[in-house]
Write a protein that binds this DNA or RNA. Structure first.
Lengths: 314, 314
DNA sequence: CCTTATTATGCTCTAGTTGAGTATAATAAG
DNA sequence: CTTATTATACTCAACTAGAGCATAATAAGG
């Protein structure tokens, strides 16, 4: 390290050929439906410039989202920052740094977003919904295509490596499905040329891609990052409650968790876990519209946040 | 959302009044000593501008660190991006976005860094080292000061809240010490005005702060973020091995984990965990210089990375 | 009224994991 | 040959997680 400050001065022009964008993965789960806020007919995530008036990145995003959706954003978390070249053709000389955030909110009829803005996120990742067992698309389309991709490799160890990675990601050959590996799965499909974004990047014309709506830029990758992060997070932080109404039944809570995690959970064990962790307390009221035996209504015990380092909903 | 693109165009000048810096938390653990790379006599983390020639943020940082330290960086992970106002007085009109990274490397005598660059990170956070039990500074200095700070609050529930947060963070009043809450502890001390950075920010003169070396800017906060992230990460990803020599004894591995986590671990259980996870394999050789019975030497089984979603060293 | 479907809720059983400890082996130093 | 130090094998109790059984309370359809 010659210059221990690590700083080398450039011309102001060069240093300033940079602009910053904020990108939001805004999630809600009305009636156990996992949805994400999109723009342009579901082909992009909402994004906007980071402006000088914003106090900080997070507060900029928060204001901006609350202004546009009319809903308070409960939980907000930074996802990832990237600055690859060739992003945006209207900035030939400069460079855009994109800072993405994950936010949770309650989507209600009173919201101010145009219809169609909220999309079920499994439109973009049909292979991620295992609530009713592994989707057929995996066995019928994805696995065969990935095997083929592995076979195409010249070297034997590349073949083996591809196959191992594919099996680990998609849970075949005796592997278990790990719902958190959302990003790894998307990136594997991208690498194998099986998503439209990869075809687009390669400039190819013929595309035998896997089902699942594409997005512009790398927005689908960002969404995958957000879903993966959320699936990890709900296990050790009580963030699901940001998606719930003030009072809810345990089944509604379970449905929300299942919507995010994309897997079904054991009902009795779920209740045991939630109750023994003191995450909720009874409101004293009952819900009549369950279809069966009426359920107790619960509310989130906000006090736990101050208490011990509270766990989530494993 | 009126403008569904989310983009509002500003003048080019306004959009470009931004520059980006990369900040590195570069960690090593020679002989079970947790060290971090610093500059300016330990008062800052190394940082450098993000330049247009860099292919991406991560590759920019990687090149830059390997060039300056002479060591390959194994694991690298983005930490956090922030852009608060009033950072750097030489950029009156513009704004700096700082993107921080956590990197792991092996520090060896052959490195190219000037002496004194690598600092034991407990110089900055003396309250974080619980390897030989809770340090006295917590009981003698921190807890009394925090109690006093809680008492100073006007309202009763603010007092209670402060006390609860302090107890949860520092593990008093029957609470357990949670080694991962590095950032929360630093931020609590900051809020209570007990670290030099807080005194500096408030422009106060008299400072009855807690021991622990301060850093410039918010570098100490970034370091706290990095340590916290690392302490979380070693539990579910085998990242410690990035800090180890190619072959090592299980005690050396344990010492590295303890250095990072800041707590002592049960030797027999540690071995059981490592071995039953197939994280390592015997080299067939023995280490003579253990001081007692010779120990088997092990190496990391790189194959596990392709295998299942491998766990770390709980 | 009675049957069936549906949801809620309480309880048990087993396997696995975790935290802590005991016991013994192999070396060096004095 | 004793002591200190480290390595390594094994045990035990407490707790956790996954799965299933049993029963309760409601609505809808005959």
């Amino acid at each position: 390290m010659r210059d221990t400050s690590g700083l080398t001065r450039e011309s102001a022009a060069e240093r300033h050929a940079i602009s910053a964008d904020l990108i939001a993965v805004l999630v809600a789960a009305p009636n156990g439906n996992p949805v994400v806020l999109t723009v342009k007919d579901g082909s992009a995530l909402p994004s906007g410039p980071f402006e000088l008036i914003h106090r900080s990145l997070q507060s900029g995003l928060r204001n901006w989202v609350e202004q546009q959706t009319g809903h308070p954003v409960g939980y907000i978390e930074q996802l990832y920052t990237f600055a690859d070249r060739d992003r945006g053709s209207d900035e030939p000389a400069g460079r855009v740094i994109s800072i993405s955030y994950l936010g949770l909110t309650r989507e209600e009829p009173s919201h101010r977003t145009p219809p169609g803005s909220w999309r079920n996120w499994y439109e973009f990742f049909p292979w991620e919904d295992h609530r009713a067992g592994a989707p057929e698309i995996i066995r019928d389309i994805i696995v065969p295509r990935l095997r083929q991709w592995a076979d195409e490799a010249e070297q034997q160890d590349t073949r083996q490596n591809r196959l191992r990675r594919a099996a680990a990601a998609f849970g075949f050959d005796d592997r278990h499905w790990n719902e958190e590996m959302v990003l790894q799965r998307y990136e594997l499909l991208y690498e194998a040329g099986l998503v439209d974004e990869a075809v687009r990047a390669a400039g190819a014309k013929i595309a035998a891609t896997v089902p699942g709506k594409a997005m512009s830029g790398d927005h689908r990758r960002i969404l995958a990052t957000g879903i993966g992060r959320l699936r990890t997070k709900i296990k050790y932080r009580p963030v699901v409650f940001e998606l719930m109404q003030p009072s809810f039944t345990l089944l509604q809570l379970q449905r929300a968790v299942e919507a995010l995690a994309g897997v079904a959970v054991h009902k009795q064990n779920f209740r045991r876990l939630i109750e023994q962790q003191d995450l909720v307390e009874e409101t004293g009221e009952m819900s009549a519209d369950t279809g069966g035996r009426p359920a107790k209504l619960f509310r989130f015990r906000h006090a736990v946040l101050d208490d011990r380092p509270v766990a989530g909903t494993k």
